[in-house]
Simulated scan of single mutants.
Amino acid sequence: MSVKEKTAVITGSNSGIGLGIAHSLARGGMNVVLNSFTDREEDYSLAADMAREHGVDVRYIKADLSNRDEARALIEQAGTCDVLVNNAGIQHVAAIDEFPTDKWNAIIAINLTSAFHTTAVALPMMRKAEWGRVINIASAHGLTASPYKSAYVAAKHGIVGLTKVVALETAQEPITANAICPGYVMTPIVEAQIPDTMEKYDMDRETVIRDVLLSRQPSKEFATTDQLGGTALFLCSEHAEQITGTTISVDGGWTAL
């Protein structure tokens, strides 16, 4: 089954992992719907530039995924959704007894609950088209844990569980659901952490990357957005038709420890 001319909706995709996946799917011939909560001229320009680069249809749809109605409206406005990539996510770090309730609620809403809402609207479209792929971007933290990340770890474990349920509910249909679990990926958000960490620990850039950011990643190398995009494209291919309800780790050996 060719992925050309199919439509992929990718949440949280105007930068970082989501944007990398969008480029890979567009490069593979898919039409793409980009999304974030902002409504800036550069968001729409990004979509136009990607369309010209890859020769496919690319649109940008604003939606605040912390809001149930906007999460569902994103898929409805897309009109069709052959591939749903639930990628949107935020992070906050604090001890449980100091973790702000509003931060907990926001992380669960965006990182987990939004995926329920988008999937609920997308599945009927996939059934009507008799083909579909649900790809949830979880994390190494969907399979293991770290201190001070209670909401993020809970949400990512939840995404893995939701993925399994979707896979079971669609197991006898031409629809699959899988979770990609990245370790640390070099994105603008991660890049922005490096100078502050260098100053805090009085370390050079290379030491911060190796001994702080990548301390739990045995390869001591970041995963790339291209690698994650290639993994997503593979999951859309005919070679992955019997891969469903599972996790694929792209973490440099993190979860092998």
Results as ranks from 00 to 15, higher is better:
G229M: 05
K6Q: 03
A22G: 03
L213P: 06
M186S: 14
S24G: 14
V190M: 12
A48L: 02
A95F: 07
L228W: 03
A94K: 05
P218L: 05
E241C: 00
V83L: 09
I135D: 00
E70V: 00
N136T: 10
L235K: 05
N67K: 03
E130A: 15
I194V: 14
P188M: 01
I75E: 11
D43N: 12
P188V: 00
W104N: 03
A78R: 06
S24R: 15
S146N: 03
W131T: 01
R133Q: 01
R216S: 11
A47R: 07
F99T: 06
M186Q: 12
T246A: 08
T231Q: 06
D204R: 07
L162P: 10
D196Y: 14
E41R: 06
P182K: 12
H141A: 13
R72P: 13
N178L: 13
G245T: 05
N136Y: 08
L84I: 10
T231F: 02
A109P: 08
N86L: 11
M126I: 07
I75T: 05
A232P: 00
E221I: 09
S13H: 11
T163M: 04
W254V: 08
S24F: 06
A145P: 03
G79F: 06
A51E: 00
V160G: 04
E70H: 05
C236P: 04
T170Y: 08
P174L: 08
I243E: 07
R68P: 00
G230Q: 13
A22K: 04
L25S: 07
P188S: 01
S36D: 06
K6G: 03
A94E: 14
T101W: 01
H117K: 02
T176Q: 12
T101A: 11
V83F: 10
S150H: 05
L228G: 08
S114A: 15
I107W: 01
